[in-house]
């Protein structure tokens, strides 16, 4: 398989096999210190982002704080 298909924030996306969550953030130019990552509904803590390799069909949510009341 040359690439895997994942869903990031509800949107289809492909990535090379072996891409870590940290790699995904880097590709999206997101600072890991300002984003919280959920992989298949499980929170992945920052120190573990590099260890989690994305698999085909994974669902990733990237969230942060925005204005609210």
């Amino acid at each position: 398989m040359n690439e895997i298909h994942v869903t990031v924030n509800g949107r289809a996306r492909h990535a090379p096999p072996g891409t870590s969550l940290l790699g995904l953030l880097e590709e999206l130019e997101l600072d890991p210190r300002t984003v919280v990552v959920e992989l298949n509904r499980q929170i992945v803590r920052r120190p573990q982002l590099e260890d989690h390799t994305m698999r085909d069909g994974d669902e990733v949510e990237l969230v942060h704080f925005v204005g609210g009341g």
């Binding site: 990031v8 990237l62 969230v63 942060h64 704080f65 609210g68 009341g69």
Partner: peptide
Amino acid sequence: VTVAVRRVDLDRSQEEAILHHLDPRQYFL
């Protein structure tokens, strides 16, 4: 100061991220 949790908008810059504007050392989030 209250903040909401939302998806990062992957089409836009990080301008919308509240922490770019409010110093968490000055305010209790």
